[in-house]
Computed example of a mutant assay.
Amino acid sequence: MTTTQTRPTRLDSTPLPVPLKIAAAWTSLMFLYVYVDIYGFFKPGVIDDILNGIVFEFDISATLLTSFLVLLAVPAMMVMLSTTLPARANRVTNLVVAGLYIPVTVFNAVGETWEWAAFYGLSIGLELFLLAAILRWAVTWPRVPTLPASAAIADGHDGRRPSA
C-alpha cells in the first residue's frame, strides 16, 4: 500500500483594488445601518411610538422621512460611486463623505440609556471601524508614477494626440 503526500499549497490572496475595498466597506455599512434599525424595532415602546407618529423625539413627517432617506441614500450611492468615479474624484469624495458620516454615526447614541449601551456601542463601533477603513484606504490610495515631460518627449511622445 502506498500513500501519497500532497504538498500544501498557498492560497492566492491577490490584493483587491482600492475602489472595491471601499465599495465593500460602504456595502457593509449599509447592512449595519439597516439591521441596527430593524433590531431597534424590538426595543420596548419603539413600535408604539411609531404608531403614534413619533420617531426618537421627532414627529413623523415627510421632511423627517426624506431626511432618513438621504442619510441612507448617500452610503448606498457611495457603493456605486466608489467603483465608477476616476481615482482622484473617488479619493476626495470618499474622504469627504466618510468624514462627514462620523458625527452622523456617533449621533445615533444620543438619548440612549445605559441599558442599551452594549447594543449601540457595538453597532456604532463597527460603523466607525468601517468609516475609518474607508478613510485609511482613501488616504493611502496608491499613486502611479508619471513620466516627466522630458522622458515622454525622448520616447517620441509629446503629450499631444497624433494628427489625423
Rank of each mutant, 00 (worst) to 15 (best):
I54M: 12
M80Y: 15
L20Y: 11
L81S: 05
I47H: 00
S67R: 05
A149R: 14
A138V: 10
Y39C: 14
I153S: 15
A24E: 01
R10K: 13
T105H: 08
G45I: 07
P44S: 11
T105D: 03
M77V: 01
P162S: 13
V144N: 14
N52E: 10
P75Q: 04
L126Y: 11
Y33R: 14
L135M: 12
W137K: 10
E115V: 09
Y120Q: 03
V46S: 05
P86A: 15
N90S: 11
W114I: 12
F119T: 00
V139D: 07
P162M: 07
Q5H: 11
T140C: 06
M1D: 07
I124S: 05
T140R: 10
A154D: 11
W114F: 08
W141M: 08
T63S: 14
D48K: 15
T4H: 08
L126C: 07
T84I: 06
W26N: 06
W141V: 00
P15M: 03
V106H: 01
V18M: 06
L29S: 01
A149Y: 11
A151L: 15
Y120R: 01
V97W: 01
F129T: 09
V110Q: 02
G53Y: 00
P75A: 06
S150W: 09
W116Q: 12
S13P: 01
A149F: 07
W137E: 14
R88V: 00
G159S: 02
L95D: 05
L29M: 11
F31T: 02
F129C: 04
T113R: 13
P103Q: 05
T93I: 07
Y101W: 07
T146Y: 03
T113Q: 13
A98Q: 00
S28Q: 03
L72W: 11
V74D: 03
L128G: 04
I153C: 13
A138N: 05
T6E: 08
R161N: 14
V97I: 15
A132Q: 08
A138E: 00
L135A: 15
S150Y: 06
G159F: 00
A154P: 00
V104G: 01
L71G: 08
D59C: 02
F68A: 14
S13F: 15
M30H: 00
D59T: 09
S13R: 10
R91D: 09
G121Y: 02
P162Y: 02
A117Y: 00
R136F: 13
A23D: 03
I124E: 01
G111Y: 01
E115A: 11
T84M: 01
V139N: 05
L29D: 02
I60Y: 04
T27K: 02
D48P: 06
S67P: 03
G40I: 09
R10H: 14
W26S: 05
A149E: 13
L147K: 10
T9E: 12
T146N: 02
R136V: 15
T66C: 03
P103T: 04
S82Q: 08
P103R: 10
A89L: 09
S28R: 03
P15C: 01
V106A: 12
F56R: 15
F129M: 12
M77T: 07
R10N: 15
I38E: 05
Y33M: 15
L64F: 07
V79E: 00
